[in-house]
Amino acid sequence: MLKLNDLTVSIDNKEIIKSLNLEVKTGEVHVVMGLNGTGKSTLLKSIASSYECTTSGLTELDGENVSALNTVQRAHKGIFMSFQNPIEIPGVNTIYFIKTALNELREAKGLEPLKAPEFMKLLKEKMAILGMDSDILNRSINVGFSGGEKKRSEVLQMLMLEPKLILLDEIDSGLDIDALKTVTKGINSLKSSERSMIIVTHYSRLLEYIKPDVVHILAEGKIVKSGDISLAIALEEKGYEDVLHS
């Protein structure tokens, strides 16, 4: 699915990711952990081609070199990034935003736009998975949303857009246990042999709900250790210092 080769990313002329290599096979779930400021979010932003990132090296999606593609082109190729703190856009209805995004994606794939009744049906289905209230739909996107509402809205968009590469930036931050359960239920409903995920998190608690295939530890812009879920559990028990130097 995704291959990063010798990836170096700078933000404001500061090198954050340094010659990073990573391969995520189709159907795999990878988790990236690491101390604050080690470049976890930057890694995801670079894969989504954020304006902030100056990136060198190779980014390959399904065997295709996408290094030169911009944010929109990558989104149309099926890359979706859920933001740690999604930005507020005053005056733009959530429902209208989702509909525009979905129909843009469909157009890029050569599909007709969804008609209003079909769209509503699909949306209601997905909202039911997340136990969401429909009052959010007519509010401006992310404006005045609680932490839980923001994360649910991110996952709702993901369910609607059905991406093939999912990037989750601290999807578990600011969620209570109940919200965590419904949000991860939504994420799990998208798990399939056709899709891959990269999940950035600080807490192995999330991994009780989403089972990872590979866990990486990022330090100073490099992957310093990879393993299975036991690596995350060890981190929780011993902390970074011990795990990295054992």
Partner: peptide, 28 residues
């Protein structure tokens, strides 16, 4: 903001569309 544009564009909206969406929301 660039952040707003990035958010909308990450969801597949073109830059023009993102701007238009924000502007239309502003003048609604």
């Amino acid at each position: 903001s660039d952040e707003q544009l990035f958010y909308a564009m990450q969801r597949g909206l073109s830059q023009e569309q993102a701007v238009s969406l924000i502007v239309n929301g502003f003048c609604k």
